[in-house]
């Protein structure tokens, strides 16, 4: 069953020196599965993710031949319709909890906001649900975290709060945009396994955006490799090591391996014709 279908998505920024295309014709379908989008900085992976939520602000604009989410035409939807989708149907976890949580609001207030504002849930029930959500991301003293401000949390805790917050309304699709890049390596694994478990249990669709090919391969069913706003290769995660495209191979080879060759790592081969 297809949850999300995207045909020829383009994101253009109108700058003073003319239009800049960040995404240039991306197409894919997504069921209740895990799709990885991989690419280096500026390859358009983040913009692709945010387009699904229609959260590109002017001067950026989104164009697509078709973009549907569970029967809703995302290109034609009104802002009110989009708002009804954001939160309960589609959610997103961003890179750095230091910036993605509101610094002057208590964590509890941010967790319960959706329940209060949208679902009109009462105080006690909202509190219970928020605490349950924090428990689900393995935060041990949720009552204390509810009363804390974001700057009082570590990066790993902050990101778990973020995941908890986005999963409270039980969305069908979660977009995780580099959810572990800002975290320490030891914490990364922890946060990833929490995210993995929750997505699996609830059977939701996941778009996992990262620059780390191996991480994505371990975590997703399918991988899109992006370069300069285009998808250069689409490959099943288990076949990734046999990827044909030289850019994908380049991304794989430029990572060091424990116990591997200690010589200089090969640089990326950026042949101009891939970018067309």
């Amino acid at each position: 069953m297809t949850l999300l279908s995207v045909r020829n998505l383009r994101v253009t920024f109108d700058t003073e020196t003319g239009p800049v295309e960040a995404v240039r014709g991306v197409s894919f379908d997504l069921g209740r599965e895990r799709l990885g989008i991989v690419g280096e900085s500026g390859s358009g992976k983040t913009m692709t993710g945010r387009s699904m939520l229609r959260l590109i602000r002017p001067p950026g604009r989104i164009e697509a031949d078709a973009m549907t989410f569970d029967g809703t035409d995302l290109m034609a939807a009104t802002e009110t319709q989009m708002r009804a989708l954001r939160g309960p149907r589609m959610a997103m976890v961003m890179q750095d909890p230091k910036y993605s949580l509101n610094p002057v609001m208590k964590v509890g207030a941010q967790l319960m906001e959706g329940l209060h504002q949208r679902d009109r849930v009462g105080r006690t029930e909202a509190y219970a649900k928020a605490v349950a959500a924090l428990n689900a991301v393995q935060i041990r003293d949720p009552e204390r975290v509810m009363e804390a401000y974001p700057h009082e949390l570590s990066g790993g805790m902050g990101q778990r709060v973020m995941i908890a917050m986005m999963l409270i309304p039980n969305p069908d699709l979660l977009i995780a945009d580099e959810p572990t890049s800002a975290l320490d390596v030891t914490v990364q694994a922890e946060v990833l396994s929490i995210l993995d478990g929750l997505v699996r249990d609830r059977g939701m669709g996941l778009i996992f955006i990262s620059h780390d090919l191996r991480l994505v391969a371990r975590f997703c069913d399918r991988v899109l490799v992006m370069y300069k706003g285009r998808v250069v290769e689409e490959v099943a995660a288990r076949d990734l090591l046999n990827a044909r495209h030289p850019y994908t191979q380049g991304l794989l080879n430029c990572l060091p391996r424990i116990g591997g060759n200690r010589g200089p790592l090969p640089g990326l081969d950026r042949t101009a014709e891939w970018a067309r």
């Binding site: 954001r86 961003m94 890179q95 509101n102 002057v104 609001m105 917050m165």
Partner: peptide, 26 residues
């Protein structure tokens, strides 16, 4: 331009609340 504003929008908060609550507090 801050990221927590995007978070509030992702949560489906109406623009009025994003501006007059989330941003204004800051």
């Amino acid at each position: 331009g801050q990221e927590y504003i995007t978070t509030a929008r992702v949560k489906g908060m109406p623009e009025g609340r994003v501006i007059w609550v989330h941003a204004l507090k800051n």
